[in-house]
Amino acid sequence: MKRRIMIAALLLALVLGALALGGCREADNPQASPNEPSSGGLVDAPKEWDGKIVSFTGEAIGEAMVRGDKAWIHLNDDAYYLKNVEEGAQLGGYNAGMAVWIDASLAKQIQFFGDYKHEGDVAKVSGVFNAACAEHGGDMDIHATSLEILTSGRDAQDPVKTDKLVWAVVLALIAGGLFLLNRSWGEWGPDSRND
């Protein structure tokens, strides 16, 4: 028991030591320096942008998660922000974007959120970029104070391709035929008779 208490005390001391060593940093004051970095630029050099006011443009993705009078939205500034793959956009790498914390009333201006069936509204937000937000558990985010819809979203199309339909019918018929053949020739395997 005594040994366990000693180990626990040692671990606690180590954690406190680690925290004391690093100290707790005050959030930087926002500087009035309008900039328009990409999400890649923000992630690659978070220190340079930390605490600055930035403008960020991207496709609203998924949904707005309303929390009280605020909301989380996610804006993607990748290769698919105007047209998705189903509609013929060229593959252009992974999605890339930024999380935005914004007034719920502003988030409600977004009518379309991007997913398989929708191309989301393209929105421009302005606000403070946080490399590690103190309010949100160290998340990298933008606390936006304004939002402007630049392009309205729409329903996305993914029509059935005829050649795939033909393949599906032919292969399904062959698979069905093999299933019947298998059944008519006997059991799933000889092992079934052993049990």
């Binding site: 290769a79 698919y80 793959v85 189903e86 593959l91 790498g93 999605n95 398989y116």
Partner: peptide, 8 residues
Amino acid sequence: QDLDHISR
């Protein structure tokens, strides 16, 4: 690629 637009 474009995970955010794939079907359910």
